[in-house]
Computed example of a mutant assay.
Amino acid sequence: MEEADDDAAAIHDCSIRLLARREHSRLELQRKLEARDFMRNDILPVLDALESQGLLSDERFAEVFSRTRVENGQGPLKIRSELQARGVSAEIIDHALELVDDSWLVHCRAAWRRRFGMAPADRREWSRQARFLSNRGFSAEQVRRVLDAAAEDDADTGS
């Protein structure tokens, strides 16, 4: 019985240290604890307790994660995929993406401008720029609109 209490205390302490560094999703934290050779049956009650105390929150993790990724120029598709891989539910992801930003087209254009700044000169360059933006996590519609607007701006300036 005392050994179980010691394990729970060790898991709790390790969890607190990890959470002090940055937010984690429940699944992420569970995986990190399992990698430290703690048993799943010992981990789950500790995670439940941390959630009930408000120290572990998938909602908070998703919001912080999303904001950071948006600041780094990533789009909603990539952010959604990364959050899903970390075990965050679709409802929480939707909510986090709504809280973070709804002007994805502006972010897509900013990412394009930082990387390229000039409209694609030919189809090959258009494809290269589109791939870059798609890999950043922007939708095909967002990419098309940004590149079309860049071409129109380029035509308007007479370049």
Rank of each mutant, 00 (worst) to 15 (best):
E2P: 00
A4C: 04
A4G: 03
D5C: 05
D5L: 10
D5W: 04
A8S: 15
I11Y: 04
I11H: 06
I16W: 01
R21S: 13
R22K: 10
S25M: 06
R26W: 07
L27A: 13
L29W: 13
Q30T: 11
Q30A: 10
K32H: 14
L33A: 05
D37T: 04
D37E: 06
R40W: 08
R40H: 10
N41A: 12
L44S: 11
P45I: 04
L47C: 12
D48E: 14
A49N: 08
E51F: 01
G54V: 04
L55G: 06
L56D: 05
V64L: 12
F65Q: 04
R69G: 03
E71Q: 14
L77R: 13
I79T: 04
E82M: 13
L83F: 07
Q84S: 07
V88Q: 08
S89A: 07
A90V: 08
D94Q: 13
L97Q: 14
L99K: 15
D102I: 12
A110G: 02
W112Q: 07
M118N: 03
A119P: 01
R123M: 12
R128A: 10
R131L: 13
F132V: 01
G137K: 06
F138G: 04
S139P: 02
R145K: 12
R145L: 03
A151Y: 00
E152F: 00
D154N: 04
D154M: 00
D156I: 00
S159H: 05
